[in-house]
């Protein structure tokens, strides 16, 4: 039981990180009609910049600095490349994001090399013990910060004009334009929000005992099943999908290690993703598309 709780806690903490990344994917997909394959590299950039600034600045300034850099990068990509390609069709845009992903990855390797770096988390290696279960501070911080960020997002989308405009744009682009909502600005806004989420995810992905290395970008791929399972256009779905993937990975590593060459927990999220695609293609929480009367 203790082991189950221990793994469960770690699974939830990891799942929250996936949720933040998955949310970024969903917000960009909804807000600008693109699936951005470069999002994982944005996560990596976030972690590397925090790490580079940490020795020179207080942690919170390093974090803010990374947000500035990563958001600027996202806006640059969005404005210079994607907005120009939008009328060329979805395939072109998605392929372009793949290209951007390769470029940003190469850039990271050029600046920081392939080597393993230190941790970039906001809290150290401390732990608290509750009834035999060890709760690492990094895990607690991950969960608390994610919940705060999710609540802030909810308020933003439900209570602010920009949030409303973003949802209107996601719902019907031409109608949004007709209301005088500047679609281009909404695309940029959705990318900027995704970039902020990427940086928040990155510091927890690089929290002790995890360290910063270029493979951090690959983790974004693990968030893709989370996106599909939850539903491409559902914010709640992204969170639930992220938690499912995180729990499967950590609990699976604990309880399924003897089957399938120890790789089962790596494959299972993708199996679940395919299952969802077959049975419920719009995801657990996605909208089937409300019919217009």
């Amino acid at each position: 039981m203790t082991l189950f709780l221990q793994l469960g806690f770690q699974g939830i903490a990891l799942g929250m990180v996936y949720a933040l990344i998955a949310l970024g994917f969903v917000i960009m997909t909804k807000g600008s009609n693109t699936f951005n394959f470069a999002h994982g590299e944005f996560v990596a950039v976030g972690a590397y910049v925090v790490l580079a600034l940490m020795p020179h600045l207080p942690y919170w300034l390093a974090f803010l600095g990374s947000i500035v850099v990563t958001v600027a990068l996202a806006l640059l990509v969005e404005a210079t490349l994607l907005r120009r390609l939008l009328d060329k069709g979805l395939t072109t845009v998605v392929l372009a994001t793949l290209g951007v992903s390769i470029m940003v990855h190469a850039l990271i390797l050029m600046v920081w090399g392939v080597g393993t770096k230190g941790s970039a988390g906001p809290v150290g290696s401390g732990t608290v013990e509750v009834g035999g279960v060890v709760l690492p501070l990094s895990g607690i911080a991950t969960i608390v910060a994610s919940v705060i960020v999710l609540a802030a997002l909810l308020v933003f989308f439900r209570r602010t004009p920009y949030g409303l405009a973003l949802r209107a744009t996601a719902s019907h682009q031409e109608a949004a334009l007709a209301q005088g909502i500047d679609i281009g600005r909404m695309f940029a806004l959705s990318w900027a929000i995704a970039a902020v989420l990427a940086v928040v995810a990155s510091i927890f992905l690089a929290s002790f005992p995890r360290v910063v290395s270029p493979s951090i970008a690959l983790v974004a791929l693990a968030a893709i099943p989370a996106v599909v399972i939850g539903g491409m256009d559902s914010l709640i779905g992204a969170v639930v999908g992220g938690l499912i993937v995180g729990l499967i990975q950590v609990l699976g590593a604990g309880y399924l290690a003897d089957y399938g060459g120890g790789k089962l927990h790596e494959v299972l999220p993708y199996v679940l993703m395919l299952l969802v695609l077959v049975v419920r293609p719009y995801g657990l929480f996605g909208s089937r598309g409300i019919e217009r009367v």
Binding site: A165, A168, S171, A176, A178, Q179
Partner: peptide, 14 residues
Amino acid sequence: QVFPELTVAENLAA
């Protein structure tokens, strides 16, 4: 061409 996922109040606000 209303915003189908948004409520009536939200449509008006938009």
